Computed example of a mutant assay.
Amino acid sequence: MKLSSDMKALEARLGYQFSKPALLVRALTHSSMSSPTRDDNQRLEFLGDRVLGLVMAEALLAHDPGATEGQLAPRFNALVRKEACADVAREVDLGVVLKLGRSEMMSGGRRKEALLGDAMEAVIAAVYLDAGFEGARDLVLRLWGARVGAVKEDARDAKTSLQEWAQARGLPPPEYIETDRSGPDHAPQFTIKATLKTGETADATAGSKRHAEQAAARALLDRLDKNT
């Protein structure tokens, strides 16, 4: 099987050339494009998630031999969560080569965080099947790069941190309210207001509700820190 020029360019960005190109094609095929003769990337995503987890666990242990399990766990979660995978996918411009059905493509699927994160995990699995664990580990460490050394034990997502802040003070969980939506259907912008029972609020706008909620939570945490 010969890869298209776009996929060969992706190989260059990944720093890896497949001996079995069909694995890369499958890793980039969303379920909206699957058929009896074309497999999608869901099973590869399942495998890639586990490979990524093992590589990150090894990398964190090697980077900080003195870290406790309590310190390592949140760092690990920050490195393997879907948002991190999607960020790496954006860095290698994975979205431009995703194979999507028409409806998914028209709804902005190439920019959707979940689709990008899933595809990145599937690509990791494809390299694992093509070159074994050593090849997959080299790929992950190359793409995740400085993230391993930069992540801290408090690197949990902002929504979790804000909820824990509220619970520690006997408050109910914060609320997230969509206050505005703008832009075309294929590239919407969501504005979310994060609110605490005590009345503190913060707003943020992003291309997905999840990103907007996280940004609003981070803005509110920053405001609380300054007030403190």
Rank of each mutant, 00 (worst) to 15 (best):
K8S: 07
A9I: 08
E11H: 00
A12C: 02
R13C: 07
G15K: 07
F18H: 04
S19H: 11
K20F: 07
P21G: 00
A22W: 05
L24Q: 04
V25K: 12
R26K: 15
A27D: 07
A27I: 10
A27P: 01
T29L: 05
H30R: 09
P36K: 06
D39Y: 15
D40I: 09
D40C: 12
E45H: 13
F46M: 13
F46V: 11
L47F: 09
G48L: 01
G48E: 01
D49S: 14
V51C: 10
V51E: 06
L52K: 08
G53K: 08
V55Y: 08
E58L: 10
A59W: 01
A59V: 06
L61P: 00
A62S: 09
T68W: 05
E69D: 14
Q71T: 00
A73L: 14
R75P: 00
F76K: 02
A78W: 02
L79E: 01
L79Q: 03
V80F: 01
V80Q: 02
E83K: 13
C85M: 14
C85S: 12
A86K: 02
A86P: 05
D87F: 03
D93N: 13
D93K: 15
D93G: 11
G95K: 12
G95F: 05
V96Q: 15
V96M: 14
V96L: 13
V96N: 11
V97E: 08
L98K: 10
G101C: 09
E104H: 13
E104W: 11
M105Y: 15
M106S: 15
S107M: 14
R110G: 07
R111G: 13
R111N: 14
K112E: 15
E113P: 04
E113V: 14
A114K: 15
L115I: 15
G117I: 01
D118Q: 15
M120E: 03
A122I: 04
A122Q: 01
Y128L: 04
L129I: 04
L129K: 08
D130Q: 04
G132S: 06
E134A: 13
R137N: 10
V140I: 14
L141V: 03
G145S: 11
A146L: 07
G149C: 05
G149K: 06
A150K: 06
D154V: 06
D154Q: 07
A158M: 04
L162K: 00
L162N: 02
A166D: 05
R169T: 06
P172G: 11
P173G: 02
T179P: 07
T179K: 11
R181P: 04
R181V: 10
R181W: 04
D185E: 11
A187W: 07
Q189M: 13
T191V: 04
K193R: 15
K193Q: 13
L196E: 06
T198N: 09
E200V: 07
T201L: 03
D203Y: 11
A204Q: 03
A206V: 08
A206Y: 10
A206Q: 11
G207Y: 06
S208E: 09
R210I: 14
H211R: 14
E213I: 05
Q214Y: 01
Q214A: 03
A217P: 00
A217M: 02
R218G: 02
L220I: 03
L220V: 04
L220G: 05
D225Y: 11
N227Y: 12
